[in-house]
Design a protein around this nucleic acid. Structure first.
Lengths: 224, 224
DNA sequence: GCTTATTCTCTACAACTATAGAAAATAAAC
DNA sequence: GTTTATTTTCTATAGTTGTAGAGAATAAGC
């Protein structure tokens, strides 16, 4: 990833060292890109707008991202990176239903920050529909998510928290699609709207997986 | 919606009658737009490309759609119209779980045609994220879908097919998000990939709503 | 054939885009 | 201050876009 990184060490004289950390600068530019897309949409994310948002003039992005597509792909990829990092944090030390709940609560667009991420991921999906390389970025994270969900489900079955007579792979697919659909609902809602009942939907789903409903309609938990 | 529709009747002499049905022509243009978007994405859907796909030259769309945005909004709205029409057909005469199943099977991207519709609706969502008028088109259909799902659920509870101890509004939200998420999975997959297990996910979900899981893990149906 | 309303083609244009690259500005080392 | 590598600005360019509108082509009624 290092760009022109070591040239100074190959010179005879001690030359002027690098001023800006290129990797860090790339992240700043990605951040500016996110802000533009979240605020005004992908069509407003022109090289000029992004440069201005980051505090630079038109051509300043060139040394860090050779083309716009490079920038966008890097920016989109970083949304997943960030989410995956947060997932690792909140699921650390947890297992079973606890881990599954933490995972979903982290992916769901429950606050302004993650609603903005939903507003970024939808333009990404739109690009990915006709760009296999971008679709692969999406697919890789989805495969990881599915594997994580299945692992949590298996643990939850061991502890008796999940007892549904449905295959775990099918349950994982259901849950993943629910999480993705929630992004759409949140991203399309009017600004300021932040509560979509997604947390309740999650609890309801977890209840479906673990609890029984008796013939007369009374609910019973795992110790019933 | 009629455009220049009645001018001939306001003349003294019997003038030349309309040659083309404007409403029908608009549908042809929408169809061409769909084909372009499904095949090469929203960015390729230029006025020139659309006109050519429909068999016309550049300026020929003008009399039928004054602007590109008019055309796109009409095209996107018609995806929902078509889906809603199909929904009405397949749910007619049904109720409860049967109607719910038919509804979902019609919305899910289970064949090439509906996968193409998923490839159209994602660009629409991307536009709707920053266009309240388009978002409203989406929201109206979603409100209708939610109402339909709740109605089917209520019927299914009456007949005993649904006995989950979770509020129907929450269940409806879960199911709707699953349906939307399925569109994303299907649209981003490589061409030719048509089986995503969505039908199995639906059956699994319906099973969660109705069947019990006893403490020792044995599954029991509604007559248990 | 002619007339007339309608439809379509084609050219034109102004705005905007990503990108390239020369020139200026900058900041460290001496 | 001077030098030098780096960074940034700024201008230029080639391409594409939506839109406008004049003119040609078309088709029906006479």
């Amino acid at each position: 990833m290092a760009h022109k990184g070591l040239s100074k060490y190959f010179r005879g004289v001690a030359a002027v060292p690098k001023i800006v950390d290129h990797d860090e600068r790339r992240l700043e530019l990605v951040d500016a890109t996110w802000r533009i897309i979240a605020r005004h949409g992908l069509e407003s994310a022109t090289m000029r707008e992004i440069a201005m948002e980051a505090g630079f003039a038109n051509g300043a992005l060139k040394p860090y991202f050779p083309t716009k597509d490079t920038l966008l792909e890097f920016a989109f990829g970083h949304v997943f990176n960030r989410t995956n990092q947060r997932i690792a944090q909140v699921t650390k030390g947890k297992s079973g239903v606890d881990a599954l709940r933490a995972f979903c609560l982290e992916v769901l667009p429950l606050d302004e920050e993650r609603i903005n991420e939903a507003r970024i991921v939808i333009p990404f999906w739109q690009k990915a529909v006709n760009d296999p390389q971008k679709a692969a970025i999406h697919q890789q994270s989805m495969d990881e998510w599915l594997a994580a969900i299945r692992r949590f489900l298996a643990e939850a079955r061991d502890s008796g928290d999940v007892r549904a007579a449905v295959d775990d792979s099918i349950l994982a697919g259901q849950l993943l699609n629910m999480l993705l659909g929630a992004q759409i609902e949140a991203a399309l809602a009017a600004e300021g709207h932040t509560d979509f009942g997604h947390a309740e939907q999650l609890e309801g789903y977890l209840a479906l997986l673990g609890k029984n409903t008796t013939a007369d309609g009374r609910q019973s938990g795992k110790h019933a």
